[in-house]
Design a protein around this nucleic acid. Structure first.
Lengths: 154, 154
DNA sequence: ATGCTTGCAAACGCTTTGCATTTGA
DNA sequence: TCAAATGCAAAGCGTTTGCAAGCAT
């Protein structure tokens, strides 16, 4: 079907390794479902909702339940493989947490496309703003909502 | 009970005026409930959830329904009196939108306190980052999560 | 064998909606 | 008068949970 993308292959392999480690450490179990969901997650690109993943997983194995996708995604977050985000719409979306430097998001309100960007100066200023007020930052969230290039055009 | 805060008085007066305007324009109606909820909202300070407002409103008039608070808050957002935000927990919280310049948030993960801050340089850099990528920004959201001064101390 | 995982369905918490009734203009 | 607004209860929606059965170890 799809040509094998060597980068994705590597990422899948590493995510599997990381998950295996995490499971072994805590005496949890490697299951067919978890591997299936992990693959669907990495196939999806980024910002997948549980329901989107559920659809993909189902197309490959209709016996997998909704709850299992929820439970697995929580597990992946705990294992450091996935990061959870909520954009303005409110549903949880997941993005790969391995090999990904921190980045922020541009969200198009018209077509829904989500673009990522990074700006080290903004990061630094955030740290400074927080430090000034006595805060130590663990993580942050920066989202810019507006219109993307395509949707701006009349 | 509480000493009358002149600033709050002014804000309530202006919010009432603005709401009155908005209602008249669209031939909507001024009701006791809307005024009650508006007052509770402005009394609350900032970042009130619907349920928190509902409790306050109820203590003043137990006949008011849950749904009316939801409907009123949506109305206030539409009228430009309130802004809606969702922090990581997921529930909608509202803050006054009048007399308030744009600001961002520092959220303490330990005690839950939400502090506001503003940084014009960050704002400018955001605009630039967006423009570079062809986006026009309508609004943005920046939240820094971590520990506040009190909660950092051992 | 043990106990973690699963699928299912029911429960959940927040929010919205349908509807009969009340109420502001 | 009469459409808008309310209160209530029910429905929606994404998410979580209880439980009996299944499966990895």
């Amino acid at each position: 079907m799809t040509a094998p993308d060597p980068r994705r292959e590597r990422h899948l392999a590493e995510a599997r390794r990381r998950l295996g480690e995490y499971l072994k450490e805590r005496r949890l179990r490697a299951t067919r479902q978890r591997d299936l969901i992990l693959a669907a997650f990495l196939d999806h690109g980024s910002h997948a909702s549980v329901d989107e993943l559920y659809q993909v997983v189902r197309s490959r194995d209709p016996s997998v339940g909704h709850a299992t996708v929820y439970r697995s995604m929580s597990l992946f977050v705990a294992a450091g493989i996935a990061g959870e985000r909520r954009f303005h719409e409110g549903v949880s979306r997941y993005e790969p947490a391995l090999h990904v430097d921190h980045h922020d998001h541009l969200v198009c309100e018209a077509c829904g496309v989500i673009e990522e960007f990074e700006d080290p100066t903004i990061e630094r200023l955030q740290e400074e703003a927080a430090a000034t007020r006595g805060f130590r930052v663990h993580y942050h969230r920066l989202e810019l909502y507006g219109l993307c290039r395509n949707c701006r055009e009349p």
